[in-house]
Design a binder for these strands. Structure first.
Lengths: 233, 233
DNA sequence: TGAATAGTGTCTTTCAGACAATATGCC
DNA sequence: GGCATATTGTCTGAAAGACACTATTCA
């Protein structure tokens, strides 16, 4: 049973405070690339339901923050990572998606590089971990569905935006960039066609510096012109 | 001040019922095509704020319905229209987007044809009306932003999906279909190129019947193979 | 000089876009 | 026959995809 005392507002002729409200959470897909694999950040739940199960980082929205701020705050609280690329994905709201109570989840996708990554002190490594997407554990709630949705979005945006800036360091070689594409798309790309396409998009600036680091020809280094999402059309 | 008595659930170590929750609403962009124009359904508000201002149809989510069901229900309640194509657009949640209280709006885009349209008895024509998108009145809240977002989505999906099935009758001519594209994209298309492209997408079935109706050559009638969203890729 | 990775060009096919003449039915 | 709309094909340029050899550095 529900009873509330609240300085309600009249909305459409009735006091909204008289009705139950769902809880609203944000959940975040944080992708990164490490060891030549696409990885997803998960946190281990220490409460029921799904106790000891891995889940997406996230939490409840506060009354005075925007959705995007809530996602950024939750991510920072759980990982120490901030100021990274983030975009809203989709809102999931099946009544029974959370067995406890009605929770609507507004999901975000975030992208981080190793240099963004500052979990170090802030997180407990047993509780917060990257998993290769090829070897994800069972996920709590409908988080597997959210992951699949986000992966599709990421794959598709690779094709017509500069979104990979979120996964690459400031300076990188075209081979490194191609590796990012190959890992996300899970297929090999032709080197000549890849370079032709990327360079024709006109998103990169060559630095005129070379990456030395092996018994082989050094590679030209590039950076993104803009580290904000751009669409090619 | 807020006081609540509630059979709260423990979530992440605290009782969510102890915290204020935002209200969650759905708002719907219902597009249709009439008189060669793209039109949007609006309802006139009869309460503050924005009293007498036009707004998107919508309302608060109930505890036991999914987001999609809530959008369908609200739309049917306000217009009598049901069983039409609908997709989730985006969630808007700036803390001050509603001056009364915190309201997060999960928005949907719906498409209707004249035959879907049954406002007749159910609605008050003074209160619920289609407006040509070229002549929209001032909209309440951030509804103009929502409209712009939805229009962009619709325009872009015309290019790589069969989404126009939502705006066309069961049987139609290629010229009628081209008109739908032209109205939404707000530009003229070349008739030969349009037909070449549409037919190559392989989404239509010719009916072998002709549309007679004027002092001129009759046109072949087509129907969509599937009246569900399909992507070309 | 051998190992390892960087860098580059051509051909073919496909798709988008510009463009105009013939076909059919009704009056 | 005249009017109104339906239907159809070619050319061109751009982009995608297949494909293999040369260049540079270091050990």
């Amino acid at each position: 049973m529900t009873m509330e005392v609240y300085n309600g507002h009249m909305v459409k002729g009735y006091d909204v405070s008289k009705y139950d409200k769902p809880s609203v959470a944000v959940d975040i897909l944080l992708f990164t690339i490490e060891d030549g694999e696409l990885k997803l950040l998960l946190v281990k739940r220490n409460e029921e339901p799904f106790k000891n199960c891995w889940a997406l980082p996230g939490g409840f929205i506060k009354m005075n923050e925007s959705l995007e701020s809530a996602a950024a705050r939750e991510l920072e609280e759980e990982t120490g990572v901030k100021n990274i690329y983030m975009e809203q994905l989709f809102s999931f709201g099946e009544p029974k998606r959370d067995p406890r109570t009605r929770v609507i989840s507004i999901t975000y996708m975030a992208l981080a590089t190793k240099t963004d990554w500052a979990l170090k002190a802030s997180g407990d490594a047993d509780q917060t971990q990257f998993f290769a997407t090829s070897e994800l554990p069972k996920l709590a709630f409908d988080h597997l569905k959210i992951y699949k949705y986000g992966l599709e979005r990421l794959r598709s945006k690779l094709g017509y935006t500069n979104i990979s800036f979120g996964l690459l360091p400031d300076h990188f070689t075209l081979t490194e960039m191609q590796n990012v594409y190959e890992v996300i798309l899970d297929k090999k790309l032709d080197k000549r066609n890849f370079r032709k396409k990327i360079l024709s998009m006109n998103l990169l600036v060559p630095l005129g510096k070379k990456s030395y680091g092996g018994a082989h020809r050094p590679a030209e280094l590039y950076r993104f012109k803009k580290k904000e999402i751009l669409y090619t059309d």
